[in-house]
């Protein structure tokens, strides 16, 4: 079994449901176990290069550390929390620390699940699957595909704009009004060009007989098999198992949104 072959919609669905379940709880153990699970299957069944993976993971690691930092700096203090460390206005409590770590791990658990999806799914397959399995209207799906095609073009245009502005002698923006103007100087030409091209693309698609008709015979059929549902069950099962272990260890806590 390869993660690349799992039906993209079911894969996405499994990731989203896992994240929704994880959101219900608030403790360090559940996300930690989920992280171990998600990372293992990414490398075992996804055959992903570590370099690619860490490139995507690193920013989340940074965010997680800041999360821990934020919750420690601005904790929700409760009477009876045990203070471990105090310096000036900074107070670190054991409970605060645990909450911080929980929040950080939670971010990382979402991230590892998402990266598993991202690195093992081709964009075209995802859209084809959304049309074939989730009944996404072809008008929208092919619209997205057409827009997605513009990306490399937009990237090239952006670089050209940078050079062109250098030649014109546009100074670097320093103040906020200057920055807003600078955003406008980039965004407007990019958008104006992209919109005109988009209108031409729409015409070209219609000229090939595209009407947005929902009855479509697809050249590439994206199928759903038992293996896909097995994958789905395994994913949800793993998350539930994590919560169960956490509960057994006495860490599990429902996330209660009250302030």
């Amino acid at each position: 079994m390869s993660l690349h072959e799992v039906n993209p919609s079911i894969k996405a669905f499994a990731v989203v449901i896992s994240i929704l379940i994880l959101s219900l709880f608030f403790d360090p153990i559940t996300p930690l176990l989920t992280i171990i699970w998600a990372v293992s299957i990414t490398f075992i069944f996804g055959r992903i290069s570590f370099k690619k993976w860490i490139l995507l993971f690193a920013p989340f690691l940074f965010i997680a550390i800041i999360y821990v930092w934020s919750t420690m700096l601005f904790p929700r203090l409760h009477a009876g929390d045990s203070v471990i460390w105090k310096w000036g206005f900074l107070t670190l409590t054991a409970e605060g620390f645990q909450r911080g770590v929980s929040l950080g791990l939670r971010v990382l658990s979402f991230a590892t699940l998402s990266i598993m999806f991202t690195l093992t799914t081709k964009p075209t397959d995802f859209l084809l699957s959304l049309m074939q399995q989730c009944k996404l209207p072809p008008k929208l799906a092919y619209g997205i595909m057409a827009g997605y095609r513009f990306l490399p073009l937009i990237k090239e245009e952006f670089q050209t704009l940078q050079n062109a502005h250098r030649v014109r002698g546009v100074a670097r923006a320093r103040t906020i009004p200057e920055k807003v103007k600078q955003i406008k100087r980039y965004v407007i030409p990019l958008l104006a060009g992209a919109i005109r091209k988009a209108e031409r693309t729409a015409l070209a698609m219609e000229s090939k007989g595209f009407t947005g008709d929902k009855n479509r015979i697809f050249y590439r059929e994206i199928t759903v098999s038992r293996i896909d549902w097995l994958f789905f069950t395994l994913m949800i099962g793993a998350v539930l198992l994590s919560t169960f272990i956490s509960w057994k260890l006495g860490y599990l806590q429902f996330y209660n949104g009250e302030l």
Partner: peptide
């Protein structure tokens, strides 16, 4: 640059064929 909506050559040719079932 602006008359295609798919990513690869074969998908693009197939797009038209799909439209006509």
């Amino acid at each position: 640059e602006s008359q295609f909506c798919m990513l690869t050559v074969e998908e693009e040719v197939a797009f038209g064929l799909e439209n006509f079932h």
